[in-house]
């Protein structure tokens, strides 16, 4: 088990915001093909950790290594082109565009790279892109609303749309920041099902989640973050049994 392929290695990362130590000596290794959950109380630094991974924030110290490549000076779009897609905590979608366009755009990024001046063939002639986008919308159950403007969706549906925007790129690493927040129980369950299904496609996932039901039904490994530090790390059973975790997080959650 231990000699697995490490896709993402966050190595001794520190990040300070003024006096706040948002990430302190965080070391995280994510194995290829697994679902790695990060849990922790509000303000623990979970989103900051993902921000460091996608190049939104530069760490003060340490580095992130993705698939053997150190992401020190990479721009966000370069990191995406390497195979990292992200769902944000507050949905980041193209509110003025239709759902179909929202999902076609990432498919173009995957096919054509970071820049391609393609002004001759109309979008309507790009069959391959359209089919991929429709398949991704089908996956998240939004296909029947493909022509609706994305800004009019409910918060939960925006999240599902953003998930489709990531899935259509078939990334090697998918980072999910609370993908089920704001969803009904029913939608949460269908999202869990979806995430389980795509697990078989070999996509590695890092998932931040407050909902323990989601975490324990998906995760192969869990890291617990509190006040910028990883206080526990291991299989779901081990983490659940860890007294430190109970104290810092699970305890308050279950009362």
């Amino acid at each position: 088990m231990s000699e697995k392929n490490i896709v993402l290695h966050v190595a001794d990362v520190h990040k300070r915001f003024g006096g706040l130590h948002a990430l302190a000596d965080v070391d995280l290794q994510v194995e290829e093909g697994t679902v790695h959950a990060i849990i922790g109380p509000n303000g623990a630094g979970k989103s900051t950790l993902l921000n460091v991974c996608v190049g939104r924030i530069k760490p003060d110290q340490g580095q992130v290594v993705f698939a053997g490549e150190a992401l020190n000076n990479h721009q966000p779009h370069e990191i995406n082109q390497l195979g990292v897609s992200r769902v944000f905590q507050t949905p980041e979608i193209f509110a003025d565009l239709s759902l179909l366009e929202n999902v076609m755009i990432p498919a173009f990024a995957k096919r054509d790279g970071a820049f391609r001046f393609n002004a001759s063939a109309p979008v309507s002639t790009q069959k391959d892109i359209r089919e991929k986008a429709e398949a991704a919308l089908e996956d998240v159950g939004l296909l029947n609303r493909r022509n609706v403007e994305a800004g009019s969706l409910s918060r939960g549906d925006k999240r599902r749309l953003e998930l489709a925007m990531c899935l259509v790129q078939n990334p090697r690493l998918l980072l999910l920041d609370e993908p089920t927040a704001g969803m009904s129980r029913h939608d949460t369950n269908s999202t869990i099902d979806l995430l389980k299904r795509i697990k078989s496609r070999g996509m590695t996932k890092v998932i931040i989640e407050h909902d323990m039901h989601v975490v324990f039904s998906l995760a192969d490994k869990i890291s617990v973050l509190a006040q910028g530090r990883i206080i526990a790390d291991g299989t779901p059973e081990a983490v659940r049994a860890n007294p430190k975790v109970k104290e810092a997080y699970l305890g308050e959650e279950q009362t």
Binding site: V54, R56, Q75, P76, H77, N80, Q81, S85, R86, F88, E92, I93, F94, A95, D96, L97, E101, I105, P106, A109, K110, G113, A114, F115, M165, Q169
Partner: peptide, 16 residues
């Protein structure tokens, strides 16, 4: 149009 709508999203979607 996507840049107009959400340039940030474009960057994290792989576009320069």
């Amino acid at each position: 149009r996507a840049i107009k709508s959400n340039q940030n999203r474009m960057r994290y979607t792989g576009f320069n």
